[in-house]
Amino acid sequence: MPAKRVIPCLDVKLGRVVKGVQFKDLRDLGHPVDLARRYDLEGADELVFLDISASLENRGTREAWVREVARELSIPFTVGGGVSCVDDAKRLLRAGADKVAVNTAAAQRPALVTELADAFGRQCVVAAVDVKRDADLGWRVYLKGGTEPTERAALDWLWELNELGAGEILLTSMDRDGTGAGFDIQLLERASELPIPLIASGGAGLEIHFLEALEHGADAVLAATLFHEGILPIPRLKAYLAHNGILVRT
């Protein structure tokens, strides 16, 4: 059985790491290079870097930011934000990314996922999906940094992404994002039926929340504020998970 992964996420806007609650009221939490260096030393399994305003501004992720962060890392590095074609992904990979994350552009043109998988291998393609609970759809997919609702049911879209060639899913509950109330366990249980790895995102506030997510189908757990502000250091979280029977990398 593969070890479970602990992944910090850098949401980057105007060159700074930011975080809010339910994608709103963003606060400045530091410089991405400084945080990347720290996480590499602390034992993070991977790092995710999301240029959160790229899609809204109709541009690609700024390669200079990616290059600066990649220099600090010895761990796998996923980069997303504004990737809309194979050439966009190629530039990010050349700048130091190991994987590329796609969200809005993939929903607007699903063939993009297949094109990326064909060009770079399925393992290189991370499908990022932002969702909210919905009375009609169960969970509704949102685009453009959570600002634009779609008519897509999240679980249907996850299965389509798998068929298109995504290598893993980064699934964010917008309802839980930044609240510290815990991951959406019901969502994770349903999404874990997929045959590809699932990264749980949105809601971590306590050590037990990570444990619950991993026990209910997640292959990896992602968080931001808890790690950025030093509330829960990664070594402490990994020790807690190991003590509770979760196989983690040390």
Rank of each mutant, 00 (worst) to 15 (best):
L137V: 07
M174G: 04
L188G: 13
T150W: 07
I169M: 13
E168W: 07
D134A: 06
W159N: 07
E163H: 14
G165D: 11
T172I: 04
I185D: 14
M174R: 02
L187D: 10
R176D: 11
R190M: 15
A135D: 05
Y142Q: 00
L164R: 14
E160V: 05
W159K: 06
R133C: 01
F183Y: 14
E189T: 15
G138W: 03
D136M: 01
W157F: 01
L170I: 05
I185M: 13
T150V: 08
L194A: 15
I185Q: 10
I185S: 11
I169V: 14
A135G: 01
D136A: 09
V131A: 07
A154M: 04
L164I: 12
W157Q: 00
V141C: 00
E148Q: 12
G145P: 02
Y142H: 02
I169T: 08
W159V: 03
A153W: 03
D177E: 13
G167I: 12
T172N: 12
M174T: 03
R190Q: 15
T147Y: 04
W159M: 08
E148G: 01
E193L: 15
G180P: 07
V131W: 07
G165P: 06
S192N: 15
E168Q: 12
Q186E: 15
E151L: 11
A181K: 03
E168L: 12
S173W: 09
Q186F: 12
L161Q: 13
T179P: 04
A191L: 14
A135N: 04
E189R: 15
L137Q: 03
A181W: 00
E148V: 11
A166F: 10
G167W: 08
T150S: 09
L187K: 06
P149Q: 08
E160Q: 09
Q186L: 14
W139C: 02
E189I: 14
G178N: 08
N162E: 15
A181D: 09
R133S: 05
V129C: 09
A153Q: 09
D175N: 14
L137C: 03
R133L: 00
Y142F: 07
L171A: 08
S192I: 15
S173V: 08
E168F: 08
A153D: 08
L194D: 13
L170Y: 10
K144T: 02
V141R: 01
W159Q: 09
E163M: 12
T172V: 10
E160P: 00
E151S: 10
L170N: 05
M174Y: 03
E163G: 10
W139N: 03
Q186H: 13
L188I: 11
Q186Y: 12
L155G: 00
L171M: 10
N162H: 14
E151H: 05
E193W: 14
A153M: 06
L164K: 13
G167P: 09
K144R: 01
G167T: 12
G178K: 11
L161F: 12
S192D: 15
D134Q: 02
N162G: 12
D130S: 09
G145Y: 01
E151T: 05
I185N: 13
G138F: 03
R152P: 00
A166S: 12
V129R: 06
G145W: 01
